[in-house]
Amino acid sequence: MNQLAPLSLVLLATASGNALATQYLSPEQAQQVIFPEATLFKAQPVQLTLDQMKQVEKLAAVPARSVSWRVVQAYKDDKLLGYIFFDDVIGKFELISYAVGLQADGLVRQVEIMAYRESHGFEIRNANWRKQFIGKNAGAGMQIGDGIANISGATLSCSHVTDGVRRIAAIVQVLYKK
């Protein structure tokens, strides 16, 4: 058996630009990328009440989906800089893992794709596409075609990540009354 064959396949897959099951950032790396000035990160898991879930659904216009959320608060010394929510949404068939950083005032600071497992649509990792979320909240032009552009060939990934970011922004508004 040719021992170079597996290496050739890896090189061919890499050269094609189609990444499958690619882990880009760990949660800890995402925290540092989103809040590089932070001196402390504190895990603050969130449990939504039924009433809060209803408020989130109304604000985001998508189901609240889960009662429990993995959240980390970022601090510089004693000052709260903001929140990082970790979530997964379905692309077309596979999960997309991402992190959303929100400032203490509840506006989106940054979106990072942590892992992408689809054969198409990885263009959502493009910084220009992700920058469209910055400075927005759940009600401020955060839908495909209304503040967020679609990417041809990545329609479901774009839609599902956009819905997820809008849901998270709504959770922050409901929880922290922003």
Rank of each mutant, 00 (worst) to 15 (best):
Q23P: 06
F133Q: 02
A64L: 04
R130P: 02
A15P: 09
S66M: 10
L25T: 00
V172R: 06
M142E: 12
E94I: 07
A138L: 04
S119L: 14
S97Y: 12
L12V: 14
V72K: 01
Q47V: 08
Q55S: 11
E118D: 12
Q23M: 05
Q143H: 09
R109D: 10
R130G: 00
M114Q: 02
F85A: 04
I90K: 15
N128L: 14
Q29R: 03
V71E: 15
K136M: 08
S8F: 15
K54W: 09
L80Q: 00
V33L: 11
A127S: 07
R65A: 11
G91L: 05
T155G: 08
Q3M: 12
A60M: 02
P6S: 05
R166A: 05
S66L: 08
T155N: 10
A61N: 04
G147F: 03
T155A: 10
V172P: 10
V67K: 15
V72E: 08
P45C: 13
V161Y: 11
E123C: 00
L4D: 11
S8Q: 15
R70L: 14
F35L: 01
V100K: 05
V46D: 13
D105P: 05
L95C: 02
A127Q: 03
D105R: 00
L48T: 00
L156K: 11
A74Y: 13
C158A: 10
Y98K: 02
P27D: 09
H120Y: 15
R125G: 04
K92R: 13
V108K: 07
P36W: 07
D77C: 13
V71A: 10
K58F: 13
W129N: 01
V161E: 11
